[in-house]
Design a binder for these strands. Structure first.
Lengths: 361, 361
DNA sequence: ATTTCCTTTGCATAGCTATGCACGGCGCTC
DNA sequence: GAGCGCCGTGCATAGCTATGCAAAGGAAAT
């Protein structure tokens, strides 16, 4: 369109030359609130448009030691919950004037290549949106002396803040619900062995079951994945005395358990088996599942996380770091909606209970 | 741990001073293949470790006009397909030595705040992983004179390359399958009106149905979302002469249609209604759905996209841009697995056909 | 009319790394 | 033993923007 110069980008000096002003004037024109006369500003803008000039953020980073970059460490995008978390983090960070440097990490050893990259780009802060942040990785991150926010992993030290969902309380709530709905024998499907979230959810669940006089639940592991939940469900339901209520450490596994129960085992949900999950992914609300689940309020958690981050960056020097616990919200749907304990009446309870309609001869 | 200096980061000059060498020596120590003696290198590394020094990428960007940053424009993370696309793009770009600058854009007008940001950070290239890239947005991106890769939107010009799935061929394949399985009256659930992908899929589907002598399919729109598919399914199935086979422009809507048909309309799939989708998301393979779908080979598409990008960056000057079409792969599952046209035998066909097992009295 | 103050502009420099160039030293060759 | 080439090192500078400081100009006030 315009005359392409040799260089890829026009510099403020180029603009200044064309506009017949000093480079300072160009810089000030693009800095909001700076003192520039109307005449100068219009000359500069005209020249900038002609050259396709866009101010570069790079030298500013050198001068101010502020890149406005925030690293977002992520992984396990197969879980829709973390996909939405990633999306919302991105939106909120953009709104607060940050740029998002996305870093993918295979669960655990992210230190390999990622950390030096983060350091070399002088990110202002790091947000871990990993399902699991290992203590080693956390220690490695602390070395950078940059504010770190751990999402759903309760690690904290001089540099790391954490924002977590109240997993134990939610686990207890599920236990209470199961008891209230007449469960006699429970099961639990765990995530990976090194997941603190899974451990806390089980802890609350088991503790409350014991308080309510129920036997300790049979357990299986599903690795936070649908297929794992499916297999874990089969394993639990094939036992001598199968459970009549299963709590899964996340929704994906719960959906797998439901499918295993209904399709492979010929069970009815909730009449023969109650199922509850964790996260509140969209599929839990699909008509085909209507899964009772502990909804993590991602919006609130992320807003809190961004607020912490803002405060940390404003104070420049981060000392006392915090762990914020956000309650989960138990939503009961049809998958636990037994009308009466141990009695399977004509389905009619809970939210969004599917109601068959006659169609086609 | 170490003595924190006033500045946040140690510079190569600081390291040089501590190590008793010149700043050049430090720079060369961290540049692979540079000429440094063993003695000097070890002195430098020791000093660097003591100061926690990490070389900054920022001045290099200024010198070389290469940031190694690639902007990844994304949106609509509620579709699991695009979540996996985002993840794989990130992994591949990291592997090829790039950093990913994640930009979220509400579908359509991304120009608002995003474009100036991209320019100011001097990204080397832009990848659009949006479900829909509007022509206006594409034009705006072209102005930056940076290589742009459009994923699944067939736009191309001097700066934009595109990599798309063969939507029309896949649409035709679905039509052929429906005909082969005895469909008499078809339906189509479209995505948003401005989605080229949805339009192409419908085009191939409708054209082939016409060739095979079937009536033009009833159509509804579902906005690429589960709920939209559910409603569209209800609308189509409530008609005077409802379809016996529905092709949906993506999997999420197809799952909605299946749930609407089975739960709200009391229909059996595939006996009363066949359903096919598009994308190949994990949920399509869940036992509860077993959805026939056109699998987009995201791995291949993304590898191709990254290859184009590499070539474009190597050649520095991008002139003739390309559009690469990757075939979709039709996978038939139980949702279209009628044993015989219009005859519902005891379920037994297709892949992963759920087989009921006796359990619990 | 003179002084004072504010607005506007330009000059100069900081900030950090990569790299061309020159130079010193050392080993190898004849 | 002398010359040549190579390796390693340091010096100096480019690259672009933000900003403190000073100066100039104009407007307002006395």
């Amino acid at each position: 369109m315009n005359g392409a110069t040799g260089k890829r980008y026009a510099s403020s000096t180029d603009v200044a030359r064309l506009a017949g002003v000093s480079q300072s004037a160009v810089s000030r024109t693009f800095k909001p609130g700076a003192s520039v006369s109307h005449a100068t500003r219009s000359k500069v803008l005209e020249a900038a448009a002609a050259l396709g000039y866009r101010p570069s953020a790079i030298p500013r980073i050198m001068l101010t030691e502020r890149s406005n970059l925030v690293a977002l460490v992520t992984g396990g995008m197969d879980n829709p919950f973390y996909a939405t978390v990633l999306e919302r983090f991105t939106v909120r960070l953009q709104e607060t004037g940050h740029q998002v440097l996305l870093v993918h990490a295979d669960s655990g050893h992210m230190l390999d290549g990622a950390i030096p990259r983060l350091a070399s780009y002088r990110v202002d802060a790091i947000v871990s949106a990993l399902a699991i942040l290992s203590p080693q990785a956390a220690a490695e991150l602390s070395r950078l002396r940059i504010p770190v926010i751990s999402f759903n992993t309760p690690i904290h030290n001089e540099w790391i803040s954490a924002i977590c969902c109240d997993n134990e309380a939610a686990g207890r709530a599920v236990a209470d619900l199961f008891v209230a709905r007449g469960a006699r024998r429970c099961g639990f499907v765990a995530g990976p062995a090194d997941s603190p979230a899974s451990a806390e959810r089980r802890q609350g669940f088991c503790a409350r079951l014991a308080e309510r006089g129920l036997p300790s639940p049979a357990q299986a592991s599903g690795g936070f994945r649908y297929e794992g939940g499916f297999e874990a469900g089969l394993a639990l339901l094939d036992a001598q005395h199968p459970p009549d209520a299963i709590f899964c450490a996340n929704d994906l596994m719960a959906l797998g358990v439901m499918d295993a129960a209904r399709i492979r085992c010929g069970l009815r949900v909730p009449e023969d088996l109650m199922v509850a999950g964790f996260d509140g992914i969209p599929a839990a609300d699909w008509a085909g599942y209507a899964l009772t689940t502990c909804v993590q309020d991602a919006a609130v958690m992320i807003d809190q996380a961004v607020a912490i981050l803002q405060r940390g960056l404003a104070a420049d020097r981060a000392e006392g770091q915090e762990v914020i616990i956000v309650p989960a919200h138990l939503i009961e749907r049809a998958s636990t909606a037994r009308a009466t304990p141990a009695l399977a009446g004509p389905g009619h309870a809970g939210t969004a209970r599917p109601r068959p309609v006659r169609r086609r001869a």
